[in-house]
């Protein structure tokens, strides 16, 4: 039981990631594939953010007045880990960039083939 309580969050992240993975490889509509890619990226970002969480009363990674001007030694366990937050800020913005380029390619394919279904596009190419 302790094992399940310690690990079930990871299993939910893996479930989300596999939902996105299934949408990417099984759906034939291009917009559905892009939605699956977005879910996949969000699940990975959620996993990284959850690494920085500390149980036991840790607060946000913003220094309080006493720590900022008190001059005493700062207790590390009192603050969350700020490094994954920074890396995931970058990852969110990059995910929006990939979403924009993917949608631009999808719109271009619709202009040429007048459909968004992958099998119909493959049939039109042949």
């Amino acid at each position: 039981m302790d094992f399940i309580i310690a690990k079930y969050n990871y299993w939910i992240y893996i479930t989300l990631m596999m939902i996105g993975f299934y949408a990417m490889i099984a759906k034939t509509n291009l917009i559905k594939k892009i939605i699956g890619m977005n879910i996949f990226q969000t699940a990975i970002i959620l996993f990284f953010v959850s690494i920085s969480y500390k149980r036991g009363g840790a607060t946000l990674p913003i220094l309080t007045d006493a720590d900022a001007h008190g001059g005493h030694v700062i207790d590390v366990a009192q603050y969350l880990n700020p490094l994954p937050h920074v890396l995931m800020l970058t990852a969110i913005v990059v995910s929006i960039a990939t979403l924009g380029v993917a949608l631009a390619i999808a719109i271009m394919m619709y202009r040429k083939y007048h459909t968004l279904e992958e099998d119909e596009i493959l049939k039109a190419i042949k």
Binding site: S52, A58, V93
Partner: peptide, 9 residues
């Protein structure tokens, strides 16, 4: 989870 900057973004 405490990641307020990430939540804003």
């Amino acid at each position: 989870l405490g990641a307020v900057d990430v939540a804003f973004t």
